[in-house]
Amino acid sequence: MTAVLPWSGRADHHCFGCSPANPGGLRLEFTEDGDTLTAEFTLGRHFESYPGVVHGGITAVICDETMGNLIVLRRGVPALTTSMRTRYVGVVSVGRTYRCVARATSGDALVPASAEILDSHGQVVVTATATYQMQRSSP
């Protein structure tokens, strides 16, 4: 099922990761499936580092967005990243389709989460773990 974030449709929603109104952003769309949130994406050359390779910082953003938005959908309030570790185990290539899958465990003020980016064959190319601080009220 397509996930609808609490701020979707707001005029001031310009998130680099998920706003369709940000022309320079990733424009990620999320799908809920049980206890996971997924974002499928294909990136162009404007997100490139080495020729044909997506910049590692961009893949970290995708993991962070997917994990954080999973927590937002479960808790109803923004989740701010307090720490994140990213491991690059393969190449994310420009022009190919990938899928980021996030999971979160329960927590009170701090919520741990993890994500993987998989290629079209299901091979893991990036992993991430993070901790999120729950914001008390929505912006």
Rank of each mutant, 00 (worst) to 15 (best):
N22P: 05
V126C: 10
L28I: 09
T129I: 13
R74T: 08
N69V: 00
N69L: 01
I71A: 03
P139W: 04
V77Q: 10
C18D: 06
F16I: 02
L70M: 14
V89L: 13
G68S: 05
T127V: 03
A102F: 04
T86E: 01
H14P: 07
Q133R: 15
Q123Y: 06
Y88E: 07
V61I: 14
H121T: 12
L28Q: 15
N69P: 03
T127W: 01
T66E: 02
T36Q: 02
P51G: 09
N69F: 03
T129W: 11
W7F: 10
T81F: 07
Y98Q: 05
T86R: 01
T131M: 11
T81C: 12
Q123A: 13
R10T: 09
H46V: 05
Q133D: 13
G44H: 06
V125E: 00
T31Q: 03
V53W: 00
S138T: 15
A130W: 06
G17M: 02
V94S: 12
G122T: 04
C15L: 02
G76D: 03
H46N: 12
I71H: 04
P20K: 05
P6K: 01
H121N: 14
I62H: 03
A102P: 03
N69K: 02
I71Y: 02
L28W: 09
Y132N: 11
H13F: 14
R27M: 06
S137G: 04
F16C: 00
G90N: 10
T38Q: 14
A102G: 03
Y98H: 05
V92L: 02
I62Y: 00
V94L: 08
L73E: 10
I58Q: 13
A113M: 11
V125L: 00
V61T: 14
V61F: 06
F16K: 00
P23H: 07
S106Q: 07
R10Y: 14
S93C: 10
H121V: 15
T31G: 07
